[in-house]
């Protein structure tokens, strides 16, 4: 690994000030550190956010759950409040990586990285999340821009993610047998505004499948999507799964998620 200067920021302001085009924030490091070890990334500065107070924690208000950005996956998966309000979100967190990743990786880190096969972005889309940063609030639909790309600007730091508590929801993932990231993950949620079907792993960036969403908004049953053809165009194709297979899995897993709701 190439050397860098390590900083542990006291507060968001300091962290933001330290950042530059050649820095990265460290919120767990589950992707950042392996990428650096493999020589795929290098930075002059790594700015640790973990020691900033108030960035971690889970708060439930009437209609939403707000999760601080440095809250670890294990904390979300084991949280009684989350399990009660949005069980599918706790289950999603329980399925991220392995136990050691869950003990270290954070929700903010996952979302900021926006890996096309990560789990949390699908929860954000499905649960109409609002991403709170030190500068603004961003709706999930506008946050995830493309592969490993978000609306975050240099120096902008996620402080919390606020999820709508849905009427019902479920997340189903077919993991890559090697990496265990999602080959396809489908998060179905019936929210106030209608049903969302957020899909991760299938394309270069998480997305809300409008056809599936609107069919399920009209009739929330797995048979409601029987007639819908999922196009494989734009879907990822690699040694683990062809676009055609992913398209099939989107449908199969949407049905599975609906049935499990």
């Amino acid at each position: 690994m190439k050397t860098f200067n390590y900083h542990s920021a006291k507060d968001v302001k300091e962290a933001s000030k330290l950042s530059s085009s050649k820095s990265a924030f460290l919120a767990g490091g589950m992707t950042t550190l392996p990428s650096m070890k493999l020589g795929l990334a290098s930075y002059n500065d790594l700015i640790n956010l973990k020691n900033i107070k108030n960035l971690s924690g889970i708060k439930v208000s009437g209609k939403t759950i707000k999760i601080g950005s440095t809250t670890k996956h294990a904390e979300v998966s084991q949280s009684k409040e989350v399990k009660k309000a949005i069980p599918s979100l706790a289950a999603l967190a329980e399925g991220i990586g392995d136990p050691q990743v869950r003990n270290r990786g954070t929700i903010g880190g996952s979302i900021a990285n926006n890996d096309p096969a990560a789990d949390y972005p699908s929860a954000c889309i499905a649960l109409n999340a609002v991403i709170h940063t030190n500068e603004r609030k961003i709706e999930a639909e506008k946050f995830f821009k493309g592969m490993f790309e978000t609306a975050l600007k240099t120096g902008e730091i996620i402080e919390a993610v606020e999820f709508e508590i849905p009427k019902k929801s479920n997340y189903q993932k077919y993991p890559n047998p090697a990496s265990r990231y999602a080959i396809v993950g489908v998060y179905v949620a019936e929210c106030k505004s209608g049903v969302n079907v957020a899909v991760t792993g299938a394309k270069s960036c998480v997305y809300n499948d409008k056809n599936l969403s609107s069919a399920l908004s009209k009739n929330f049953s797995s048979s409601a999507i029987d007639g819908i053809e999922i196009s494989s165009s734009g879907m990822n194709s690699d040694i683990h799964a062809s676009a055609e297979y992913r398209a099939n899995m989107v449908k199969v897993f949407t049905k599975k998620a609906v049935e499990a709701c």
């Binding site: 493999l38 047998p177 090697a178 990496s179 990231y181 040694i239």
Partner: peptide, 22 residues
């Protein structure tokens, strides 16, 4: 599960546990 995969140019695609299924 396991399969070693070289692409047509001879690059090893399955060169880590991200791609080689243990």
């Amino acid at each position: 599960y396991e399969n070693c995969h070289y692409d047509q140019s001879g690059q090893l695609v399955t060169a880590s546990y991200m791609d080689y299924t243990m």
